[in-house]
Every structure is written in structure tokens, then in C-alpha cells.
Design a protein around this nucleic acid. Sequence first.
DNA 1: CGGGGATTTGACACATATCAAGAGCGGTGG
DNA 2: CCACCGCTCTTGATATGTGTCAAATCCCCG
Lengths: 260, 260
Amino acid sequence: MTSAAATVHYASSPVRTVSSGARSAVVTPFPTHCSACSLRSTCLPCGMPTADIGDVDGVIRARRRIRRGEHLYRAGDPFTALYGFRSGFFKSYVDTPDGQVQVTGFPMAGEIVGLDGIGAGVHTGGVVALDDGEACVMPYAQLQDAAARSPALAHQVHRMMSREIVREQGQVALLGNMRADARLAAFLLELSEKFAARGYSATDFHLRMTRDDIGSYLGVTLETISRALSRLQEQGLITAKLRTIAIVDVARLRRLVPEL
Amino acid sequence: MTSAAATVHYASSPVRTVSSGARSAVVTPFPTHCSACSLRSTCLPCGMPTADIGDVDGVIRARRRIRRGEHLYRAGDPFTALYGFRSGFFKSYVDTPDGQVQVTGFPMAGEIVGLDGIGAGVHTGGVVALDDGEACVMPYAQLQDAAARSPALAHQVHRMMSREIVREQGQVALLGNMRADARLAAFLLELSEKFAARGYSATDFHLRMTRDDIGSYLGVTLETISRALSRLQEQGLITAKLRTIAIVDVARLRRLVPEL
DNA sequence: CGGGGATTTGACACATATCAAGAGCGGTGG
DNA sequence: CCACCGCTCTTGATATGTGTCAAATCCCCG
């Protein structure tokens, strides 16, 4: 297991300082300053009073590089920290007991993962990099300490978790109500917005995940994804050549999604 | 809107004491003591050190009775409090913009709702009573104050939200991977466990929701639910007469669910 | 240049949605 | 107490969307 060597474990109490993280080459021991980070508008500090953003800085004890195909954590790993992505593209998933994998999201820069582990102290799902990236490591013990001292930060953590709950409810609604083409359209629009929010083109982008990943995320098979892409292309809504996607007609694409 | 009159609104800061809640007949102004509550093993204090359970008591400012068909809150209502159910059976749902309703859960005694409102300060979904019940009202401002003083309580809130995230991931996996009979079997087993945890029979119970509600929750039509129930009955796994359900063969029912 | 995984496309099977009709149950009012 | 009415539930016939199986192509990577 190469991931074992790459995983950073913090003793939960007292918290080990990150200088000891030098044992692993993928951990950068330099603290990052949120107030100077270009992602502060989407990441944990999102919406916090500017004066309180500094409260987050003390929580971040390291940055961790993740190469494509590498796991940030897997189901069953002990929960030690939350991770805020600085760059890269990722896939979060849960294993179902019969060996299947259910993709639960495609987090990218500015998003935070690891919340699933708080409840049981163990991660119930995993996160793998679809592209090289970097994450800020926020040891949970540090976060607890900082939140106890900063009401603004404490509230921010609640908001972050609440938004994750709402996001998943939207996914449930998608899986429960929409058909394949609508699901795919919703997915493409979701991606488009996420790219746009990060300064990339909202219409032309490159998929980092396979058809199989998309299918799992949307609750259909990879063949259905492939066919749905072809149909959208025939209708002139998009251009899709392998993983290169161009949205040609946003308005009509949006009209495919009953919930918009 | 009768629900407007029944809704208790707390000013977010400073927090109005609940004695003013006497204007509404459905609010009981007597504080409740968690340490004496029979539901403490499933409710918010679940798993907390006994010494810290008292920290929760200060948060609860009222109890609220809800009659069948009445809404605890609706989508769009301002978020003011979390609610812990002391009794009753409920249905949580989100409205999809095209007028549909997606049922997201069937919370009952010992469960907590309202977490969806923290993120935006407004509820994104609603909760309606399927049967008369009572809820402990935990104004969010109180909860914040108490959590700032009690690390154990702060952690407990995180755990509660994390578990909700994991629960929804399980629902996503169900909607994404399982077929109608398996979904229904999983639903019946989930209900069975919830009833058993509350001291009711794990094998004989009464459904409080319609076939339509179940169908929405499981992402299929009410006809499919009806047929699936008939099939399970033909196979001798259950007895279903209207809303009266008896689980005859738990083992075989469980084998229908690929994830168990 | 070769090979393996990813993608596309087709044919077919099957599960579920849709449309429709009728029965059963429960609440209400005479 | 009974009759009625509305809602829920069941069941059937049919349509349709998606899954499954299979084969061919394409692309990327070594």
C-alpha cells in the first residue's frame, strides 16, 4: 500500500506539530495564509467576516501534494483531518458492501472533503485524485480548538456541513426524479458553473473522469452516458469528443433539466 | 397560512426568551432535561460523556406540539432552530423547482431536523407530521452559545451533521444501484431497525406514509411500490395489508439488499 | 509500434413508467 | 347507524427507457 506511506496521521491529542511531517515528501510544512489565498471566496472562509479569516490560518498545519491516481484517504482510514483543495481534480466515493463503488462527487479547488469521518472517527468513503493537486491539511483537533475560540469559525464549519447536506439532497432529487439526458445535462451545467467560478471557461472544458465515473455519479451505466452525450450532440446542444466538451447552447441544455 | 401562526420565531440576537412563546398554544414553555429523557441514547446527546449532557439542557427553550398534517417548517422559512423529536412520525422533503416533491426521510422520535437551514439561514426543505408528535426546540443562537462553552457539545453537533451526510450518501447509493424490490426491502429493514431501537416491534408495524411517499423516497412510482409489496408478500417475506406490515422472513429480506 | 483501457454503437431483454379501471377503506353527514 | 364520497391502494395492459451483452474503433502510453 503506497498510500499508507503517503498518509499523514496526526495524534488526536496532543496534536503533533507538522515539522514531524517531514518524514513524508508529499507534505509541505509551510503554513498557508487563507487571507492571501485566491480561493478564499469558495473555500472554508467563504462568507466569513474578513477580520475572522485569520482564525482559519492557525488550523492549517501542512499542505499535501496528491498525484493523479493517489488516494487522499480511503474508507476505513482513521479520521484525523479535513482537507481543503488548493488545486487539482478529485473523485469522492463510497464503497457499497457488495463491492460496487458509488461516486458521490467530483470536488475541486476550493472545496473541502473529509466531513464524512467526523461522525464515526473513521472515513466512510474515499477520495482519489483525477489530476495532480494540492490540499491544505486541517487537523480536526486544531479545528476544534480554533472553533472554540472563534464563534465565526465555528459557525463557518456548521455552514459548510449544512451546505454539504443540501448538496446531497439535490443529488437525491436528481437520482429520484430525472431521466438520463436530464441528469447528464444537470451534470454538465454543474461542471460548467464550477469551472466558471474558478476562472476557467464555462463552455469549453476537459473532463477528468471516465464515462464510468459519470455514470456512477448519475446512477446510470457508462453506455447510457455515452449515448446521452451523443444525443445531446446530435441536437446541437454540445460538442463532445472523448473528454473534450463544449457547451454550444446553454439555454436549451438548461431547459432539459426540469429543476431549472 | 395557519403554519405562520404556529411557527415560533426567535430573534437571532439577542435571543428572545421562550416565555414570550406563550402567545402560541402549541409551545410548551417548560424546559426539558435531556439527562432524564428516554431518548438520550438516540438524540443529540447520543454518545456524549454523561457529565456533559447537561450542556444540552440549556439549549432547549421550548417544546412544540405538532398535529398530523401540520408543518414544522417549510422550504423558504427563515432558519431559527433545530428540532429534536420527542414523539411522532414525520416526513422531510425538498421541493424541486418544477413543482415535484422529493421525500428525503422519515424522521421519528430521537432524531433531529433543521440542519439544512444553517447554510443559507433559510430552510431548503420542509418537515410535516405524519402523526401527532412533539419536538424540542433548540434555537440555533442558544446552540452556538452553548457549543462555544462546551467542547463536548460542539463535537456532538459536528458528529450529528456528519452522520446526516453519511446517511444521505447511503440514500444516494441506494438510488444509484438498487432495483425496486431491493430498495423496498432496504426501506422496510431501515424502518424495522428504527422501530426496534425505540422499543417497538421490529417485525410488526404500521406505516404512517402513503405509497406515494415511499415511492418518492425510493425514487420509483407508487405503482411500483404497490407491486413490489405484492411480490415480497407472494414470496412469503412479508405480510402487507394496506399500511399494516409484518416482516415474516428477515433473513431472506436482507438477502434481497445487495449491500447487506 | 504495440497493447490495453476507454469509448461508441448496435441488438435485445427487462424493469419500470404510464395510463386506466376498479376495489377498499375511512371519515363525514344525514 | 348507514350511505356517501374522496382518497388510497391494487392490478392490468402497454409504452418506453435503461441495462446487458457484444463487437469494433479510438486513443493514449509505454
